[in-house]
Design a protein around this nucleic acid. Structure first.
Length: 423
DNA sequence: TCTGGGGTCCTAGGACCC
DNA sequence: TCTGGGGTCCTAGGACCC
């Protein structure tokens, strides 16, 4: 069977989302910042042209806001998630089999489309997505996922391709591999790129010409899979249904350095509640909860500390109340006074479906009561917005809150102005 | 002053068992 | 004191992705 994959990805996705709702930003340099307005995580083409790099700390480029009319936005994930759904829904009209690979990327199974004019079809997809959602996209089509990635990258880079590239002819595939630097290949990160270049493998084409045994020896079976994929042998299938997550993590840097147990507990309790909500969304429970804390590694004058503690809970749970309880115990075990803390996080693992929980004979928790309480809380959250109802440990001072000074309005959602309720 | 967050997969090595 | 092979499970660490 001959395989054929499309990879559609949104150009400069977060920056494009901000533009959809404020067209006056078109043609101007735009960046979107990470949580806490820490560093740059998305750039419009104009921002790239100013020399701004992915991951640049915002404080180092802040001067460009004034001097180069740079527009900077705090990240607004609710908006981006919503726009992502619209793009994915539009794409799924063009083939029944799609894999949402990330918030801004989607693989399309085009295995049944060999007899249509792929070039025209690709353009139809691109035009429709842009017309219906306002988000510009690029589309690469090729016989394997890794080659579709190559095609997508060139589609974006080449002025001639202008956002669409179909790679089905061996000659075109070879030319594309030759034009792709090894560090730009999907699955080749910084370490492998350095290693491969030391062995005179500078392009994707060089990589396909290396021996499989040599690659297995130095890059494990993952490298071998990539080798096959780039040579046109499809090894990676389309994963239409996302498998349930094996671990869920919520962690943030604080808006400022914290030192008291109470402040850090408030933040950590909130992260525990977020993990519980993520678990409920995927209808599962977790048995292990890990809490970590750390100081700011960039503050060279501060004494540094990192520690984590994992607790195995008696029964797997997805209740805010229980997770906060055990997260608190974990935090108590690792918290040390007189440090300036910058970040904490909660990780839940050993995740099982809600319906397959091992109960404990000595369990004293009224689980039915917890479950119905969580249902009520989720219902209120859905109606009135996030953080309107929560467990008291999450506190009201919120001195740990993230900085988010440049956030755009919630264009696609509306949060009612309701008072916060504690339980 | 100010440097993100959330994931996956693979391997090597140690502990332990028969 | 010396001697073997094979299996499983767990963990830490390293690589990668967006």
């Amino acid at each position: 069977m001959t395989t054929l994959f499309g990879l559609c990805d949104c150009n400069n996705f977060y920056a494009s989302c901000e533009r959809v709702f404020d067209p006056s930003l078109n043609g101007k340099p735009v960046v979107v910042l990470s949580n806490n307005d820490g560093c740059v995580i998305a750039r419009s083409n104009e921002a790239k042209a100013l020399g701004i790099q992915m991951g640049d700390p915002f404080f180092k480029i802040r001067n460009l806001v004034e001097h180069k009319h740079l527009h900077a936005f705090s990240s607004n994930y609710v908006l981006y998630g919503d726009m992502s759904d619209r793009v994915m829904q539009t794409l799924s009209l063009f083939t029944p089999n799609v894999e949402v690979y990330s918030i801004d990327e989607c693989f399309l199974d085009l295995g049944n489309f060999y007899d249509v004019n792929l070039f025209n079809y690709a353009w139809e997809i691109k035009r429709t997505v842009t017309r219906w959602t306002g988000i510009p996209v690029s589309l690469g089509i090729a016989p394997t996922k890794a080659l579709a990635k190559v095609a997508n990258k060139l589609a974006k880079k080449s002025a001639k391709a202008n956002g669409v590239l179909v790679l089905t002819e061996p000659y075109h595939i070879e030319k594309a591999l030759e034009a792709t630097k090894i560090e730009d290949v999907w699955g080749v990160g910084r370490q492998y790129a350095k290693f491969l270049k030391n062995h005179h493998i500078n392009t994707a084409l060089d990589f396909t010409n290396a021996s499989e045994n040599w690659i297995r020896k130095h890059m494990t079976v993952v490298g071998v899979r990539l080798h096959k994929e780039l040579r046109g042998e499809s090894c990676l299938e389309l994963d239409e249904v996302a498998p349930p997550k094996k671990g869920i993590c919520t962690s943030r840097s604080f808006g400022k350095k914290l030192t008291t147990f109470e402040d850090i507990l408030e933040a950590t309790a909130s992260y525990a509640a977020k993990c519980a909500k993520k678990l409920r969304n995927q209808k599962s429970c977790a048995k292990l909860v890990t809490v970590f804390v750390q100081t700011n590694p960039f503050s060279e004058n501060d004494r540094q500390y990192y520690n984590s503690k994992t607790i195995c809970m008696p029964v797997a749970t997805n209740s805010d109340i229980e997770l906060i309880h055990y997260a608190t115990l974990s935090l108590k075990a690792i918290f040390k006074p007189h440090y300036w803390y910058k970040k904490s996080g909660v990780i839940v693992t050993e995740i099982v479906p809600e319906t397959q929980i091992q109960f404990d004979l000595l369990d004293t928790v009224d689980r039915d009561k917890h479950n119905s309480l969580m249902k009520v809380m989720d219902g209120l959250t859905d109606r009135f917005g996030r953080s309107k109802v929560h467990v008291a440990a999450q506190g009201i001072s919120k001195s740990w809150l993230l900085k988010s000074d440049y956030k755009s309005p919630c264009y696609t959602t509306r949060l009612e102005d309701m008072p916060t309720v504690f339980i």
